[in-house]
Design a protein around this nucleic acid. Sequence first.
DNA 1: ATCAACACGTGACAC
DNA 2: TGTGTCACGTGTTGA
Lengths: 482, 482
Amino acid sequence: MGDKIRLEEEDKGMLESVLGHEAFSFLIWSASNKVPDEFRPKTKDLGVQDGLHKILEGSDWNYAIFWQVSNSKSGKSALVWGDGHYKEPKGSEVHENRGENVRKRMVLQKLHSWFKGHEEGNLQLKTDLVSDLEMFYLTSRFYLFPFDKSSSPSQSFNTSRSVWVSDAESCEEQYQSRSFLAKLSGFQTLVLVPVKKGVLEIGSFKSIPEDHGFATSVKTLFNECHPKGLPKIFGQELSLGGGSGGGAKAGPISINFSPKVEDELDFGGESYGIQSNRVYSGNSSNGHRIDPGMNHVIGGVLNSQPIISALDQSNQDSNLMDRKPRKRGRKPANGREEPLNHVEAERQRREKLNQRFYALRAVVPNISKMDKASLLGDAISYITDLQSKIRIMEAEKEVNIRPEVDFMARKDDSVIRVSCPLDDHPVGRVIKTFREHELVVNDTNVSTTENGKVIHTFLFQALGDAAAAEQLKEKLDSAFPE
Amino acid sequence: MGDKIRLEEEDKGMLESVLGHEAFSFLIWSASNKVPDEFRPKTKDLGVQDGLHKILEGSDWNYAIFWQVSNSKSGKSALVWGDGHYKEPKGSEVHENRGENVRKRMVLQKLHSWFKGHEEGNLQLKTDLVSDLEMFYLTSRFYLFPFDKSSSPSQSFNTSRSVWVSDAESCEEQYQSRSFLAKLSGFQTLVLVPVKKGVLEIGSFKSIPEDHGFATSVKTLFNECHPKGLPKIFGQELSLGGGSGGGAKAGPISINFSPKVEDELDFGGESYGIQSNRVYSGNSSNGHRIDPGMNHVIGGVLNSQPIISALDQSNQDSNLMDRKPRKRGRKPANGREEPLNHVEAERQRREKLNQRFYALRAVVPNISKMDKASLLGDAISYITDLQSKIRIMEAEKEVNIRPEVDFMARKDDSVIRVSCPLDDHPVGRVIKTFREHELVVNDTNVSTTENGKVIHTFLFQALGDAAAAEQLKEKLDSAFPE
DNA sequence: ATCAACACGTGACAC
DNA sequence: TGTGTCACGTGTTGA
């Protein structure tokens, strides 16, 4: 691996200084291992350009990128560049020194040559000078986020949680390896909105406070309004922000409740010191079971096993002593002081368990009763449901695209016949539409292109009138829903 | 719905008397609603006939059916007839009265006419007389098991648990709506083995005790040995039953341990009286934490919410008093007798909770520590993993088969161009193989058949020698794995 | 008043 | 010798 990329030492320095170290090494790695070859873009022109435009127009947002789910042959999945749009803020004049600008252009050209073949459109800049925003946007095109690596977009998609950070430091964290260019650009707000087929990333130079309506309306729009036409409702929904939408789809995971950012950053369930006490004291004067989960850090991401360890420190401080004497349970009856430590340990064990229960409540939908046992029962049946769902989907995927191949070697020539169910064939719906309209196809042809596409061409006589043609066109459009 | 099926009253009576009431109404419903039309068979000739033969040959099994996962356009899934095989026991002579036989044939013909189009091969019977086994087998062809309805095969697939019942009554239960014909046939053993793409159903007139090796070897065979060739290992593995196999795939759910049937029938986790006590007393003399889950009814199916209710009866009996005085915990210190009920209630609450914990342990794979808190943590991350897996798969499925369609209406004729990524196209792998071998295709052709298939034909010049042809053939075979 | 659900302190084990 | 986990009986609270 890495045979293609040969770098002079000075080029390396230039790239690294322009892109930042982390972005540089990511892109080198990506290009060397031909990662984008594996995760090819699938469908081009996703019909989301309009939507991206609408988001930016008349707003304080500066760019929007649609990261699209794509899978490799080896079964891995990643978020790859789907489409994007950006606009410079109105009054901004880019005044930079020449040398810097020259280097930027060179870096962009280098990147472009590395990833050639995937982006046929050569880089065309809006102005002579390359702004920081432009630089960020154009390099993002060459990015991708594998699902088996942790990244903000992939996590947002996985958990189907929106991310909204509106200060520079949080942005820097979220941008991860792209943070160098993001910091140069000066982004103050970054929003990640998971949608059906990927993640929407929207950024702004200004600090925009969280607007839950905006996120949900964007989400519902990108989940439903794909079929090219009718972007009427779009601007409307966007401007009034959240009036309509109301995602009745009831995703399994509850979205972040409040503008508190730490919901997404702090790995929930393991912060004992202050938070726990707050819950405790808050409850002890209030009755003990008014859904304490709401008060708590809500389960967070819990993305992996190692979380289970790191506790048992950070709680030996002041807040340990002023614990309320606990209204419930056994009355003190404290003769000795030897078991006092034991009592505290047991307290912590209980609290840890309850933490987990709250976290479990957060990830299991359709909790029947708030009861602990019921919760476990629900969780179990939910898990089995998910398992069977996955089992079914996997079996379907395997059985789907597996045509029969007959090979016949004859004397002078050979014949290969590939037979495939009409429903699984890309032109299946088209052919069915033909049959419905009783169209007679005069000629048909199949060809392949250089960039890995199969093109079917059907030729038939003109239709009776324009109306019929229009009807057929609509029918064809609706044949591929969404 | 139900326009197609018109029945004379006498026909109805005949069908019902031959098929049994439940099978009759199921088949009527299925045919009327054209259910098999929705779940079409996808791929024909799955290459499992050899396997099915091998299972029956030289054994006491009388029939084997492979139920295959299939999905409808509306997104539902079901197990449909994939393939099957049956054999009459050696010494059996079918001697029946004429009238019965005539009615059977008429029923079969009626069924065949209802479901025409799906099974092109007309019914050809092995003998003049239709045996009960034959009757059962042939009507099963018209069956199917939707996943949103509860049935033994679909449950077996969902939970990926094998089912093995070896007495007539249990068989009757498992066969559900097919039980009438099954009872007539006199099946004493029914085995359901979940495999990758469906469920294997195997039955016998004899009562065959559970053989775990048989199930696992069948499973691994049907999961791996699809690629037509090399059925050598097959007979071997099958005969010695379980020596090799050893499903290292570590399915998330443990298979039923013992021949006890109630594992699957009794909804686990709610039987307190005797079982609980057994566990308790067994442990109390033994140290308290030697994986009590193994002693317990293992979570069972837990298929739905309503399980959570039915308890709190059935425990007011003798076994309540002789409960061991409980080695652990607070020493009696029993002055009053008023709280004795409270104590018992609390005991039950705890036990219920623990039941759920055991059940949870059973459905969550990769338990890091046997600790309760860790278990919850594992369960949570497992759930989020499953959720994201499902999210990714759904996004992939949507983005997959969605080609671009261009419609151009011109003066005299019209053109439709369908563009589709090579990787998603059925002939993609074939074309890639051509390119690898630098084959020049002389002619190609696409046609569709009556029964809903698309057939691509490629014609090219003869290859250099037979070896090259063989190599290409192998390459093509291996292009579609499994 | 009963009843279900919890949290608490405590003794018992195990490593 | 602890350190962590569990089960038990009990006190308490809301329905």
